[in-house]
Simulated assay, not measured.
Amino acid sequence: MTEQFNNLIAQFWPTTVDGVVKGAIYALIALGYTMVYGVLRLINFAHSEIFMTGSIGALVVVTTLVAPTAGPVTGLGLVGLLLLMAVVSMAASGGMAVLLEQIAYRPLRKHGSSRLAALISAIGASLFLMEFFALVVIPWLFDRGGQGRNQIAMARFLEREEVFTIFGASVSNNDLLILAAALLMMFLLDQLVNRTKIGRGIRATAMDPQTAVLMGVNIDRIVRITFLVGGAMAGIAGMLFLLKYENTRYNIGFILGIKAFTAAVLGGIGNIRGALVGGFVLGLVENYGGAFFGGQWLNVVAFVVLVLVLMFRPTGILGESIQQARA
């Protein structure tokens, strides 16, 4: 136990830096879970595949525009490439999320089906998308010869360089880019929900759908926008994940999706700012647990956190729903 504690102390700052960056990705994915739950009271378990779609979209841009032996991209070319990756990943994930809502959830909602039916539909959609990408989309996009289940590596176009250190822990340009992009998207989403007409519609629908309809809110439009925005956040997360780990695969969202759901529950499911807090907390706790117990325990730590939160504080850290959020 003493050796494990000393190991944690020795790795504390590098573990913290990596945990914050990882937590930013968790938080972006968690936003989709918490927005859909806040509006529909539905856990969209297919959201993990929405995240995977974003990573594939970003990878398509890189493989199309950057040759494997081209080396680092710099200057305006790098800025343009990153922006294009962001746009494509957001469009791919957002479009897939809207399509998912249209096909898997809206018919059930129109017929007044139970939440259990919607949950089963979500699980079925998740499994379908995983296998569809593995057997059709990935082989077609990347000419894998039917080996779409293998990891697909990304050509490194961004040279990782140390920008500064924190108590000996290196902070690279890649870490700063991921964190800055994540924080910007979180800020923009917070402003959208709390400062715009669309945001008022989302909060009104989450609070009382029947009254919102009487006040002129188009519920179908709001639900569609909610899936679109949540999907776009997952798309950006997919792009940032690709920048950090430089590979993706058909089931990359499975474990990450559960962890992001854990982050949403930890912060307070249905609470946008809670999802952000939960993502960063989970990233740090998971990394600290991995440094203490060993890297093979990373996933165990995350799932233990989920169980403990559900047992002792099921409402999460902030514990308020989306309609109660205020700027």
Rank of each mutant, 00 (worst) to 15 (best):
L189I: 14
D190V: 01
D190H: 13
L192P: 07
V193S: 06
R195D: 13
T196S: 14
K197A: 01
I198K: 06
G199L: 11
G199T: 00
R200N: 08
I202D: 04
T205N: 06
T205R: 12
T205S: 15
A206P: 06
Q210H: 14
Q210T: 13
M215V: 10
N218A: 08
N218H: 12
D220R: 15
I222K: 05
I222V: 10
R224N: 14
I225R: 09
T226N: 02
T226V: 07
F227M: 10
F227W: 12
V229T: 08
V229R: 01
G231F: 00
A232I: 05
M233F: 13
A234R: 02
G235Y: 06
G235H: 13
I236Y: 08
G238V: 04
M239E: 06
F241I: 01
L243V: 05
L243P: 04
K244S: 13
R249C: 08
Y250W: 14
N251T: 11
N251R: 03
I252Q: 00
I255S: 04
L256G: 08
I258T: 02
K259M: 03
A260Q: 00
A260Y: 00
F261C: 07
F261G: 11
T262F: 06
T262E: 07
L266D: 00
G268R: 03
G268P: 05
I269W: 09
I269Y: 04
G270K: 07
G270Y: 03
I272D: 10
R273E: 07
G274D: 03
